[in-house]
């Protein structure tokens, strides 16, 4: 499995309130949530993002609230993968549980710039920066998490 797309780059401590502001949490509709994704720090994101694009943040990405609406909004916006130096733990868990691919890689988070074209190989954890002709090695998922993802999320894996 691979992801390939243009990068939308953000900084440290991207919190769930800016990923999807609480004022929009009166709905659980994925498309409606996506239409407000990132708008409090980047109004243009939702107009710029294309299916398959990649989001990159730095330290503590997804900190704050436990709202699963945050990874849902990112996924429904078309983003195929989030790369960050570190993730806040609830966001990390939620992303896995809903099947949004996320990778921890401080080197990639540091060197990838906004607009770079990036390819991610989830089987090897290798992130290739096509624009800069660089590669970075991400932490691969533990087997336990691989199982959840390969079975299509936590609830699907429980039903088996």
């Amino acid at each position: 499995m691979k992801a390939h797309g243009a990068v939308h780059k953000y900084g440290d401590n991207i919190d769930t309130d800016v990923i999807i502001p609480a004022r929009y949490l009166n709905t659980a509709d994925h498309k409606e949530l996506a239409s407000h994704c990132m708008e409090d720090i980047d109004k243009e994101f939702i107009h710029r993002v294309k299916e398959g694009d990649i989001m990159v943040g730095q330290a503590n990405f997804g900190c704050g609230s436990s709202r699963e609406h945050a990874p849902i909004a990112i996924k429904a916006s078309g983003i195929s993968c989030v790369i960050a130096a570190t993730f806040a733990r609830i966001f990390y868990r939620n992303a896995i549980n809903i099947g949004l691919a996320i990778l921890e890689c401080p080197e990639a988070a540091e060197n990838i710039k906004n607009g770079d074209e990036v390819e991610v190989d989830f089987d090897t954890g290798v992130i290739t920066n096509v624009t800069k002709n660089e590669t970075y090695q991400a932490q691969p998922f533990p087997d336990f998490i691989k199982t959840i993802i390969s079975e299509g999320g936590l609830l699907n894996s429980l039903r088996k």
């Binding site: 436990s66 699963e68 609830i90 868990r93 939620n94 809903i98 609830l155």
Partner: peptide
């Protein structure tokens, strides 16, 4: 500890 809604759903069921 805080979790997301999918964990809550799984927790309620199992």
């Amino acid at each position: 500890t805080g979790v997301g809604s999918t964990d809550m759903a799984a927790g309620m069921a199992t």
